[in-house]
Design a protein around this nucleic acid. Sequence first.
DNA 1: TCGTCCATCTTACTGGGAGTAGGTTACCAG
DNA 2: CTGGTAACCTACTCCCAGTAAGATGGACGA
Lengths: 199, 199
Amino acid sequence: MTTAKRKRMPRADRMRQMIEVAEQVFSARGYAAASMDEIAELVGVSKPMLYEYFNSKEGLLLACIRESRAVLREVTEQATAGAVDAEDALRRGLLAFFVFIRERRQAWSLLRHEMVLIGTPAADEVEEIRRQQTDLIAALMSGHFDSGDELRAEAAAEFVVGACERLAIWCERHAEVNPETATEYAMDVLWTGLRQRAR
Amino acid sequence: MTTAKRKRMPRADRMRQMIEVAEQVFSARGYAAASMDEIAELVGVSKPMLYEYFNSKEGLLLACIRESRAVLREVTEQATAGAVDAEDALRRGLLAFFVFIRERRQAWSLLRHEMVLIGTPAADEVEEIRRQQTDLIAALMSGHFDSGDELRAEAAAEFVVGACERLAIWCERHAEVNPETATEYAMDVLWTGLRQRAR
DNA sequence: TCGTCCATCTTACTGGGAGTAGGTTACCAG
DNA sequence: CTGGTAACCTACTCCCAGTAAGATGGACGA
């Protein structure tokens, strides 16, 4: 093994390791219940090191969140890249999202149990992820829809993000619902609308 | 003034007063940043009193949440009571919700910045509010829709709740969007579907 | 009017975790 | 082998949730 059990470690490596451990602890115990001492111990390092690298407990959380954010952006963009029309793009994007939250449960759990502090950087960061997603959707829409009303389009994008977030949480309680089914349910309401199902 | 500045106060009154103050402090500072000492001081009472009445900081938060929950249920049920058909019911329900979050900003802010601790009673309680809303919607749907697929209907209800939650947050950033407009935007996507707007 | 009782309330503490001051040591360059 | 610096540690402070044990206003019976 190249990186044996050397005590001293280059900054970048140590940082990645810390984020990895922190993501586990935060998602397992919850942000509030997690202690910096515990994370430090699991990393095999003393507490001040964490502060050296991330400044605060919230800073550490922030780093974890940013990490997930980058991944989510990546997969969504790649998924929607080759779409042929609006319906296809929406479906691909939804599927990518539902696959993401299934495969990276810890990361997702972190994002979903965010909200520890109002008006703090971490909350803003999570909000930023949503903006990232809504922007993606809005861009997608402006490419495929007649953009009559600017505000209405923005609202629709927010709507989609919120709906999927909730549906994802619902999926956690329903193991039998796989990403494909979730996508179908979402498309059903979003694309077709409820009117079709009224008596 | 009937209730002058008497020091001693009957249990029920004191409790209401504490909840009222706590709701303000929690929503202003955020749950984590709020301190029991501060709340106690604002109430004009010593800290152990808060613990006498609510057992813990989280218990106090819980009481605030339950309070809001009751109000939200009340207004939604009343709003949808006299609906003539599915579309009408949905529209009335949405409007009631958007009015609620505008008029009881503090309560809403509390609900929305929930989630302080995973797996704790408070998180469960907030989740319970959503269940309350989804149940209402699901019941509404089963009354007006052909219930082909049980699971699909449940998913749709979750979807609606999540979407509205997000749209409500979006509204906070857009003061020009009143409850009526928000309702219209929501109906547009939910009822009509996005397909209608594709080129 | 005056005790008596107890619900309401207080002061003064503990424990635990976030954050920090300042010293120590492994590794690399020359 | 020998600085020099980046990685690291010990040993604290302070703040805040939660608690133990005692004080007191006031309703109500005599």
